[in-house]
Amino acid sequence: MSFTNNIADITRSIVDSSPAHYIMKVQSFSLLAKNSIERYESGNFEAGGYKWKLALYPNGNKMKNVTDHISLYLVLDDTSSLHHGREIYVYFRLFLHDQKNDNYLVVQDTVRKERRFHKMKVERGFDRFISLKEFNLASKNYLVGDTCAFGAEVFVCNETSTGKGECLVMMKETIKYKHCYQFDYLSELESECYDSKPFNAGNYEWKMKLYPNGKDDELGNYVSLYLALADPSTLSPGSKIYAQIILRIIGQKQGMNHSGQANYWFSASSHENGSSRFMPICNFTNECLGYVVRDSCCAEAEIIILGVVDAFP
């Protein structure tokens, strides 16, 4: 025995067969609302290689402004194996038992028979699964002795990958990291650049890069100073760090510091940021200003991590 009733893209029918994958029996149904249980989640069950559960709102999903119906949803329970960008297309039906006639009211989607589940959308179903008025009718036999039973059938039809993506997280609370390093034996420098020892800031390893004789077009005119990721290969492709940095060369005689501040994006392909025109070489080497004392200078970096982008496959 069966009938079909289509209302607002939802198909309701009566079938004799019980749900293939899960039955959730609820005794003392009226006590759910009396005990302020607005949402009840079943135990999990497996179908199509994934774990699922049912989410029941006995007096309607208030977040969807539903008050006069029972809301019932299918929920993807374990997303650990479902990477970002991975999608599951699922055909499912949700059931309500007619206890006298031993058949089931089946509710399913009419237009989109296959529903899409992914990491950011793990719940699908029906805000208005059945009206409370119909559910409580004695003639319908859904609620007998304050007991009822819901069920689910779940069939995974297809799995796809939507490609690459990213998640940007801006920091609500920031921490300032400060690190000072002394560059020695500047006159004995054989390469164009001095690297500080790596240091940690915000769970990332950094280093300062000092070019005492300048870099690129500023060679011979300006001291160049940069902040860089110590090992860019540890940052996955597509991942980025947005940071506010202050670079500073400390005056060792008169207490005068020379600094510059800017916000930069750091990534595996853009792992070094700073200024090629940080300070005129004539000021840097001026003994009276005291930036270089006994062939050494002190540089300082302040770092505030403002945001992080994590790439996902």
Rank of each mutant, 00 (worst) to 15 (best):
15 V>Y: 09
17 S>N: 11
20 A>G: 02
28 S>F: 04
30 S>A: 04
35 N>L: 03
39 R>H: 07
39 R>C: 08
40 Y>F: 05
41 E>C: 08
48 G>D: 13
52 W>H: 01
55 A>D: 15
59 N>Q: 12
66 V>G: 05
69 H>F: 04
70 I>F: 08
71 S>E: 05
75 V>T: 14
78 D>R: 12
80 S>E: 09
85 G>K: 10
88 I>N: 10
92 F>W: 02
93 R>T: 01
95 F>Q: 07
100 K>P: 01
118 H>L: 04
118 H>V: 02
120 M>R: 11
121 K>H: 12
121 K>Q: 15
127 D>M: 03
133 K>H: 03
137 L>R: 06
141 N>W: 11
149 A>P: 04
149 A>E: 07
152 A>C: 06
162 T>P: 00
179 H>W: 11
180 C>W: 08
180 C>L: 13
186 L>T: 00
186 L>M: 02
186 L>K: 04
190 E>L: 01
197 K>A: 03
211 Y>L: 01
218 E>D: 08
223 V>F: 11
233 S>L: 05
237 P>M: 15
240 K>E: 13
240 K>W: 09
246 I>C: 01
249 I>D: 01
253 K>C: 07
256 M>H: 15
258 H>G: 07
259 S>A: 13
262 A>L: 14
264 Y>V: 03
268 A>H: 11
272 E>D: 05
272 E>Y: 05
278 F>G: 09
280 P>S: 05
281 I>M: 08
282 C>G: 09
283 N>I: 00
283 N>C: 06
304 I>S: 05
306 L>H: 15
307 G>K: 15
308 V>A: 12
312 F>Q: 06
313 P>L: 15
313 P>V: 10
